[in-house]
Every structure is written in C-alpha cells, then in structure tokens.
Amino acid sequence: MDVYLKGFLIACKGIPTTVVVSLIAIVLGAALGLLLALCSQTKSKILQVIAKVYVDVIRGTPMLVQALIMAYGVPWLLQSWGSAFKWDNLGGLVVPAVIVCGCNSAAYMSEVIRSGIQAIDKGQMEAARSLGMTHGMAMRLIIIPQAVRVILPAFANEFVTLIKETSVLGYVGVVEILRRGQLWNSSSFETFPAYIGVALAYMILTIPLSKIINGYERKVARRESAA
C-alpha cells in the first residue's frame, strides 16, 4: 500500500501549482468573460463581432493546442521578428499557462454571464434607468449583482472544469499535479500507483467544491420556494 500512498503524496505536491494557476485563471476568466458578455450585449456591431469571434475561436480549439501556441508558438514568432522574447524572462512557462487558462475560461464564462444577465427581468433595467441611472450604473448596481446570484453555481462548475483542464499544462512545462505523477512514474515505473495518486489528488480538490455548489443550489432552491 505504501507505494500508492507515495504516489498520492507526490501528486499532492502539484496541488499548490494547480490551485494557484486555476485561481488566477478563474479570476482572469471572470473579468475577461464579463467584458466579453458586455461586448456581446452592446449596440456596437464591431464589439459584438469581436466577442463572437473570440468565443468561437476559443471554444472551437482544444486548450492543449492553445497552450502550445502561447507557450512555444508566440515566442517563436516574436523571435523570428528579431525580438529576444522568452517566457523565462517573465517568470517562466507558468505565465503563458495562466494566460491560456484564463482566456480559455473567459470564453465559457462569457456565455454563462451573458445568460445570467439575460435572465434578469428587463423591468429591472427600466426601473433603474427611470431613476436617472446611466446604463453602466444600472448594470453595476442592479443587473450584475442579481446576475451573479443566478450564475454562481455555473461559475463554480466552471472552476471545477478548469482545475481538471489544467492537467494539459504539463505538456507546456508546468509541473502541476499530473506532471508530478508522470515524472515519478518515469523514474520509478510505478505506473498504476502514480496515476491513481494523480486522480486522487484531483478528487480532493474537485469533490469538496462540487459538494459546496450542490449545497448552495439546494439552499437557494429552498429560499426561493419559501419566498
């Protein structure tokens, strides 16, 4: 059994990296996602098209490919233009990893946020505007706070998905949970215990999170039915 425990503990060493990358990425993704959602709701055709193309491109390509482009393709391109660009100079390959996870998550978050905003009764916007609020003020004070409650479970689900998706980052040199397991496997040849350890390490992150989401959804459902 010791070898399984060892595999689990080694995989767990990757947890801080996975959690930090996921956390920064989800914040980046939420901010960028909100911006995209607002763009898709404006009257400006150009902003609408930009948001649409962004979402289509990101959702239409695997995150691993996006990570390879960002981590290796972009430096290659910049260097071919004569720049001395290297991710190492900016803090290492974890930087493009975070950027890619954030940008990827933003495309999914923007859809979640857009549907959350659309779920708010349009009378709310009218009431806010009739008090003399600008569109921006009404969004900030009235619409978005209500939309947040609607989208919180979907937001948390996106976070769970993101944690699992960061497993592709091992391919671009980030030593997170899966990469830890792979490295140990290639030196110890304890293949089954290594990957079981990796799976368990992901589960201790994702399962409590899912439980929290379910609890929140039940609480909201109870409150709604009581009202």
């Binding site: 009764d121 009431a127 009739s130 009235i142 706070p145 409650r149």
Partner: peptide
C-alpha cells in the same frame, strides 16, 4: 418618476 405595472422593485 415612474411606477410600473409589475412594481420592478430591486429584489436584492
């Protein structure tokens, strides 16, 4: 001021 048929109070 405006008063709506469906009140439109801010629920939050």
């Amino acid at each position: 001021g405006m008063v709506f048929q469906s009140f439109n109070l801010f629920p939050h």
